[in-house]
Design a protein around this nucleic acid. Structure first.
Lengths: 116, 116
DNA sequence: TCCATAATACACCAACTAGTTAATTAACAA
DNA sequence: TTGTTAATTAACTAGTTGGTGTATTATGGA
């Protein structure tokens, strides 16, 4: 099947799932809490499916408390994904440097590159 | 149609494409250079398709030099993706702190749940 | 002109994704 | 027991993804 990093990125490639993670970053929440902002756009089973994807990527863990399923964010895969990106973004910037290219960032003090 | 961030994450959710980006982080490369490590696993048109996905996400730009298409990495979408993840990973760690939960890192000396 | 090389376009296919509705399970509460 | 709430499962569907093989385009060189 798919490697963990691919699973993480695939899980993040959906605005609904990202919003759910953003919600969970603020604290534990039940399925219905997480579903609430989306129920005008989709059904509850659709929400369950999204949560399954997040769970499959290890980004959340689901507990049980009576009939509720309290969900928690698990940041570990997120960190690994950041690591991958940082690693190559840095290599990319270094490569630009070797070509003597320096640009000012649009938004902040970060170096951006374009070819001469 | 998909939002830019989702496109970026979707583009990253494939090991072939990530390897191509890793290669491009070391410097410009033609399509056939990028294809070379994968030609035992897939056809050239498949490579072209992967590059189209990367291009569609704005992660690479393709130039023209005679019959070659020199590809370059564009780090901007990568940075935006990192920003999104860092933001929520940090919020998640802060939330753990508020609940007084501290975890030891499994693999390295990374701080978990440390508040400023 | 003719040929080789680099890359893309096209038509097709199997597997996966993201959604639906309807039915079902599980826990609690009256 | 009966009913309510929380959530999942099942069966189905449209659209997307990732691959294939073949054909085509574009450039440079003999």
């Amino acid at each position: 099947m798919r490697d963990p990093l691919s699973r993480t990125f695939a899980a993040l490639a959906d605005p609904t799932r990202r919003a759910m993670l953003a919600r969970l970053a603020k604290g534990e929440a039940n399925v219905s809490d997480l579903a609430e902002p989306f129920l005008k756009d989709m059904s509850l089973p659709a929400v369950t499916k999204h949560l399954k994807v997040l769970e499959g990527a290890g980004l959340i863990t689901k507990g049980r408390k009576a009939q509720w399923r309290p969900c928690q964010l698990n940041g570990e895969p997120l960190r690994e994904a950041v690591d991958w990106m940082e690693q190559h973004r840095i290599a990319w910037e270094a490569q630009l440097d070797r070509h003597g290219v320096y640009l000012k960032s649009k938004n902040r003090g970060i170096r951006h590159g374009r070819k001469k």
